[in-house]
């Protein structure tokens, strides 16, 4: 497979571009989309398929639901995840419900693309890792890419999916560069990937915390602790089987999550593993998450609220020490 280097956000747009070229039912709508004749998407696909919308999240997303019901495959660029909150009825109580409520008679193939987690001094209202409030909503799928290649492959899969998909790209990864497959590239939903194999402890991380967990694993390896790093890639559907299988090998689980502790992927995975993998655990499950607090503006406070590499390393050491056996 030939590849090329590009940015994380470039990979997202590459997938949208390729899917728009492949299927004329794909539309691109949003407040920061098109809007001028020299926009490359407008030039390629025309103003009927690429449309700038007013700051009317509810009408914009509701309209996308209606267009999907009528056979189109809209991609809404909602810009920031928090803007979805303005249109919550349409996001969690309309588009995602139709297939089920209609007894399977209709489908709503729609992508809501939004950035999240911009913890770089953006303070309270533009920094949340708010996927916890979406991952338990039936009918909605949620993708959290952590690499440029996955950003491309998950977006392509999202556009081809017959359900509403929340595609949340991490703002702090926007300009990260990486190798991305040329041409068609699809990453299946509900399949976690093991980013680094290891026998001593299982580390699960999403989005921006994946590179953090990998850095922690490298630090720990210098001390002879081999961490296995798993990236679920989609959190609805959530691949608990890969995590459980890993815990059965390692006996230890540390969950890393940028979200607030009580609305995190970590909390869901901790419950699943406690129920289905209790016999395999040699130490308590430890969660390294954001605090149950808003993101503060001032840098030291911002850092205090969030997980970081040192907190992950410390958690792993605690788990290893608890289980008594030096690995």
């Amino acid at each position: 497979m030939s590849t090329h280097e590009t940015t994380y956000i470039g990979a997202v747009m590459e997938a949208i571009d390729q899917e728009m070229a492949r299927d004329e039912r794909v539309l691109l709508l949003g407040q920061s989309v098109g809007g001028r004749p020299d926009d490359p998407f407008v030039q390629r696909y025309g103003e009927n398929r690429v449309r700038v919308t007013p700051i009317s999240e509810t009408a914009e997303i509701g309209m996308a639901v209606g267009a999907a019901l009528a056979g189109m495959r809209p991609v809404v660029d909602a810009t920031m995840a928090e803007f979805l909150l303005v249109a919550m009825d349409q996001v969690v109580n309309e588009g995602n419900r139709f297939h089920h409520m209609s007894g399977g008679r209709v489908r709503v193939p729609m992508v809501l693309k939004a950035g999240y987690g911009f913890t770089a001094g953006w303070a309270g209202q533009h920094t949340g890792s708010i996927y916890g409030m979406f991952m338990g909503v039936p009918g909605l799928k949620v993708a959290l890419p952590s690499t440029p290649a996955d950003a491309k492959g998950l977006m392509a899969t999202a556009i081809r999916d017959d359900n509403p998909v929340l595609f949340l790209h991490h703002y702090l990864l926007t300009l990260d560069r990486g190798e991305v497959p040329d041409g068609e590239h699809l990453v299946p939903f509900g399949q976690a990937v093991i980013r680094r194999p290891g026998a001593d402890v299982t580390l699960v991380a999403t989005g921006w915390t994946v590179p953090m967990a990998l850095a922690a694993a490298a630090t720990l390896a210098a001390d002879g602790i081999e961490a296995e790093v798993i990236d679920p890639r989609t959190i609805a559907p959530l691949d608990t089987a890969t995590v459980l299988a890993s815990v059965r090998r390692t006996g230890r689980l540390v969950l890393v999550d940028q979200a607030t502790r009580h609305a995190s992927v970590a909390a869901v995975l901790a419950a699943e593993v406690a129920e289905a993998g209790f016999d395999a655990l040699r130490a308590p499950i430890v969660q390294v998450t954001g605090l149950d607090a808003g993101i503060a503006y001032s840098r030291p406070m911002e850092e205090h609220v969030l997980p970081d590499e040192a907190k992950v390393v410390a958690a792993v050491r605690r788990v290893v020490e608890h289980s008594g056996t030096r690995v």
Binding site: E60, G62, G66, A67, A70, G71, M72
Partner: peptide, 16 residues
């Protein structure tokens, strides 16, 4: 909640 859905259908019908 149904009002924007009708807009979407209208958009799709025109696009088609």
């Amino acid at each position: 909640g149904n009002i924007p859905l009708a807009l979407g259908s209208a958009l799709a019908l025109r696009a088609a």
